[in-house]
């Protein structure tokens, strides 16, 4: 059984690629065979976040156009045995991806025994985003607790329920999950930021994870090491929990409260 998961959001810069990379690593760390695919044609970035940018020889469009085999284009992760990356093409031709082409690549991955295909969607609601979600069984909707991100993700929910294969064929609908990123418990406590409960209520989705705001995300992307692999970080633990929930574990949400600080730290910042 192969499960196709799209990581989507509508708005850009909310953490889709960070999430795709960490979820893919988390699944692979549990021994699952995982392919993570960058759908952002023209703006390749997943390779950088995964730290394999210098090993990209062939990309997604090359495979579709028959310039190479899928095996040649899949980049094997150096840290995790069962994890493979398929880079986006840097071509400016947005029509380089086609519905049939994507289907062909998925069928080959399925035949090859991949258990999870993670589709890192581009921002927006154009063709790339549409193709990334079209064959999905599940969707992780990445949202910042901020008005434009919440509104855009509701638009994406509308597309998930109408513009996917499951919707068109009248099959069981795509399972949708909410993943909140850049969450600041301190600002939620002071009423400056919407809470998990607020966003959940507006969008009407189940919460698969809440990722705290943290400088570790930038450090991880600087280094090309998906943040889930930084085990010292709360962000890593929060992503681990999300992966657990994806696999059916029931886990309480963590990091919703500000860590207690000592008196001095509170007086002088830190």
């Amino acid at each position: 059984m192969t499960e196709i998961i799209v990581v989507t959001s509508g708005k850009g810069g909310v953490g889709k690629t960070t999430t795709s990379a960490s979820v893919a690593c988390g699944l692979a760390r549990r021994g699952k065979r995982v392919a993570v695919i960058d759908f952002d044609i023209g703006l390749r970035n997943l390779d950088l976040i995964m730290g394999c940018e210098r090993r990209v020889v062939y990309d997604f469009v090359n495979v579709i156009q028959g310039d190479c085999t899928l095996k040649q284009a899949l980049i094997k992760d150096k840290r995790l045995e069962t994890l493979f990356v398929l880079a986006a093409s840097q071509t400016r031709d947005k029509d380089a991806l086609s519905m049939e082409g994507v289907r062909k690549v998925f069928d080959e991955l399925i035949a090859d025994g991949f258990e999870y295909i993670i589709c890192d969607s581009p921002a927006g609601i154009e063709k790339g985003a549409h193709l990334a979600m079209y064959y999905a069984d599940r969707a992780i909707v990445v949202v910042n607790p901020e008005v434009s991100s919440v509104r855009d993700s509701d638009r994406i929910l509308g597309l998930l329920s109408s513009k996917t294969q499951r919707a068109e064929k009248g099959e069981e609908k795509v399972k949708e999950h909410l993943l909140l990123t850049r969450y600041s418990p301190r600002r939620v406590a002071t009423g400056e930021m919407m809470s998990v409960g607020d966003v959940k209520e507006i969008l009407g989705l189940d919460v698969i994870g809440v990722i705290p705001e943290s400088p570790d995300v930038l450090s991880a992307s600087n280094a090309g090491t998906p943040v889930i692999l930084n085990e010292q970080s709360d962000v890593s633990r929060a992503y681990e929990d999300a992966v657990g929930r994806l696999l059916g574990d029931t886990l309480p949400l963590r990091f919703l409260e500000e860590p207690k600080k000592g008196f001095l730290a509170r007086m002088f910042g830190g």
């Binding site: 901020e146 008005v147 919440v150 509104r151 509701d154 939620v188 002071t190 009423g191 400056e192 930021m193 919407m194 809470s195 607020d198 209520e201 507006i202 969008l203």
Partner: peptide, 17 residues
Amino acid sequence: RSQPTANVAKERLRIIV
């Protein structure tokens, strides 16, 4: 300290969504 505006955001979103 900045103004608590989360409830305003929530209310506006509730309506527009």
